[in-house]
Write a protein that binds this DNA or RNA. Structure first.
Lengths: 211, 211
DNA sequence: TTGACACCCGACTTTTTGGTCAGTTATAAT
DNA sequence: ATTATAACTGACCAAAAAGTCGGGTGTCAA
């Protein structure tokens, strides 16, 4: 019944990726470029077919008004990934970090994530009050800018750790805050490096927001 | 530090709601209308201020290219609720359904949801294979159009029920399918009414996608 | 071998959208 | 009293984006 052609699938993937990375759908122009065609008409044709197959919806005849329907996710064999209100931007591979090995069993598709989004397994109990428990799986997006309150992946001399990043107008001004009263704040130092931000936590097979 | 004015907050709410309901941000025109002003300039002004306060980001000088930043969620005192890839449209209050009483303890903000999104508590085990268990809390979006595979809230003569909606090209063509082998399919009849679609399930305090 | 179909081109038009400019009004701060 | 700031108006413009029209190419099945 639902036979999707190679080209149609490519376009659907382009749209999916774009939404995941930016939080809103691409324009015709951007799709045209990504797909490597020169005419708008190609996009119009393909969108019409995707729409006919209920994989996609063009809500209004207006800029960037696309919605990927539930079947669209399934066709792509990808999770209905979550463009949080409050998404940020992206980058390229992260080294020296442990990529969770169990991931495969949980949701194989997500390995395909591009643009510097990585899955990590967290060890320790220093963030329990933020809902991150020992051996939890988190989604990390590599980025360079952080705002106070972000939960970040920090590389310290002792290794990597996940803590809440705080920049305050009182001493110690900038520090990492564990979300567990058992642990003390860690003042930020030159030898530390913030690698990325935790954007989602996997709980019982569901991706949820970080607090 | 972060002092947001009434008007700025209103606009942020408009954007938040719009993204939640459609999956993509509004145009200036739509914001202008929702806010009840007649000039574009008002929106430009307000957006500039929201951006200066890092509540919002204008990614490109292009249509619908807004992103609500993490602090934006916090200011609104709302959860970073989840406009799934695959979101649908909205409407007005739903009657005769039990609105979950426990909601308050879990996340008080979500009660503010507008546009026909409701929280229901599910009873029974007929949808366990779709991950919906007895006493689970689900998010329902009232709507009129459904596609095969949607999990829907149906009003039958015997009361309300949640089942998967299937429209097939073989008999019985249109029916409601429980996700539990213990139960039989229910052929669709004239006296049934589909009220809305289940768009999310609450599991351990996290909203996840429906399968 | 002739449709049907998926996919594409290229020039063009129309509409939508964001933006500018030069102002006004109201409120609060110094 | 004066200045600063938030919020807004209304006319107008430029660019972005969607859409139209009239084709073309290759594939595959009947």
């Amino acid at each position: 019944m639902t036979k999707i052609t190679k080209r149609q699938k490519q376009l659907l993937e382009i749209i999916y990726d774009y939404i995941r990375d930016t939080g809103y759908p691409p324009t015709f122009e951007e799709m045209r470029e990504s797909l490597g065609v020169v005419s708008n008409q190609s996009i119009i044709d393909l969108l019409a077919k995707l729409e006919k197959q209920k994989l996609l919806k063009r809500n209004e005849a207006s800029a960037r008004s696309l919605t990927i329907l539930p079947f669209g996710d399934k066709i792509l064999e990808r999770p209905a990934l979550i463009p949080f209100l409050g998404a940020t931007t992206a980058g390229s591979p992260m080294e020296a970090m442990e990529i969770a090995g169990e991931w495969k069993q949980i949701s194989p598709e997500i390995k395909e994530l591009k643009n510097n989004v990585f899955i990590l397994k967290v060890f320790g109990d220093s963030m329990i009050n933020a809902g991150i428990e020992n051996e939890d799986i988190v989604l990390v997006k590599e980025q360079k800018e952080f705002i106070s309150g972000d939960i970040v992946l920090a590389q310290t001399e002792d290794g990597s750790t996940i803590k809440r990043f705080i920049s305050d107008d009182k001493p110690p001004y900038i520090y990492l805050k564990p979300e567990n009263p058992k642990y003390k704040n860690i003042p930020f130092s030159e030898n530390m490096e913030l690698k990325g931000k935790i954007i989602s936590i996997l709980k019982n097979g569901y991706w949820g927001p970080v607090k």
